[in-house]
Computed example of a mutant assay.
Amino acid sequence: MISKAFATALVALAVALSVPARAADTVKVGITTTGVPFTFIDTSSQKPVGAMVDLAAAIAKDNGMTPDFKITAFSALIPSLKTGKIDMISAGMFDTAKREKIVDFSEPVYSYGEAMFVSADDEQNYTLDDLKGATVGAQVGTTFADALRERGTFGQVKLYDSIVDIMRDVKLGRIKAGFGDKPIVAYQIKQKPALGVRLVKGYEPMRSGKVALAVSKDNPELLKKVNASIEKLEKSGELAKIFAKYGL
């Protein structure tokens, strides 16, 4: 005959097993699909890959968590973090003073500036002054777009959802030049020559920045864990290996 205490224990165990894993065991990570080689979708597996995807996965693993990658438009990453749709941003996002007013950034993990690209048929290596009055393009929500508009010398600064969209219009002659994250632009041109654009040689970036992960200001505990993991990955050499895997 089963004792009352044993029966109670069995019921408690059954209830425990039926309860889903705690939300704290999963971290929702906001990424984009247009940030090759930082964040993108592998065409064969249809899964998110990239340096910042691998880094987020390594950080989650170090803290005993499972990453749940949420594909989000770049311009919607910070709003999604503020509303709780995601817990963390892991993309090619710069830590800027403006953004620091809204979110908390981790220690930097990579740094770079923007690149200028023109049609592959255009052999001139332009400076910003050469493009006075011209129509140029940049990705919406980036620091490069802000810098171009603040300069005030262009005929128009068109904003696009992705760098590939900018490249298309440069190739078709709809805009004179495009601007974007140098590692992303260089990687895409190398992988897809048919895009029909090239990097402008000798171009000096308007802004260089440091890439970092971002968390909500309401979640200092997560920021502490992220920074501790970054330090550990850096000391072990794993951080460098992650970026080297994608040619960074």
Rank of each mutant, 00 (worst) to 15 (best):
V109R: 06
V109G: 04
Y110S: 04
Y110G: 03
S111P: 12
S111E: 09
S111Q: 14
S111V: 05
G113C: 09
G113V: 06
E114N: 15
A115C: 06
A115I: 08
A115Y: 04
M116V: 05
M116R: 08
M116I: 04
M116C: 07
M116W: 05
F117R: 02
V118N: 03
V118H: 10
S119G: 15
A120L: 07
D121P: 13
D121C: 09
D122G: 10
E123I: 08
Q124D: 10
N125Y: 09
N125V: 03
Y126F: 13
Y126C: 13
Y126D: 13
Y126T: 08
Y126W: 10
T127D: 12
T127R: 12
T127F: 15
T127W: 13
D129H: 09
D129F: 11
D130R: 05
D130F: 09
D130M: 04
D130T: 08
L131D: 08
L131P: 14
L131W: 11
K132Y: 12
K132D: 12
G133I: 04
G133W: 13
A134L: 09
A134K: 12
T135A: 04
V136M: 06
G137P: 00
G137E: 02
A138D: 07
A138I: 06
A138V: 05
Q139S: 15
Q139I: 15
Q139C: 15
Q139E: 11
V140D: 09
G141A: 14
G141V: 00
T143S: 06
T143W: 06
T143N: 07
F144C: 03
A145H: 01
A145I: 01
D146I: 00
A147H: 03
A147F: 01
L148N: 01
L148S: 04
L148M: 00
R149E: 14
E150G: 10
E150Y: 07
R151E: 11
R151L: 08
G152H: 13
T153K: 14
T153P: 09
T153R: 15
F154A: 02
F154H: 03
G155C: 02
G155P: 00
G155R: 01
G155T: 01
G155M: 02
Q156R: 05
Q156G: 04
Q156D: 07
V157C: 05
K158R: 09
L159V: 00
Y160C: 02
D161N: 15
D161L: 11
D161G: 13
S162L: 13
I163T: 08
I163V: 15
I163P: 00
I163W: 09
V164N: 14
V164H: 10
V164S: 12
D165F: 14
D165Q: 13
D165H: 05
I166N: 00
I166R: 00
D169K: 09
D169F: 11
V170S: 03
V170I: 14
V170P: 02
L172V: 09
L172N: 15
L172H: 13
L172Q: 15
G173Q: 11
R174K: 15
R174L: 13
I175M: 06
I175D: 02
K176M: 03
K176R: 04
A177D: 06
G178L: 01
F179E: 04
F179K: 01
G180C: 10
K182E: 12
P183H: 12
I184Q: 05
I184R: 03
I184P: 00
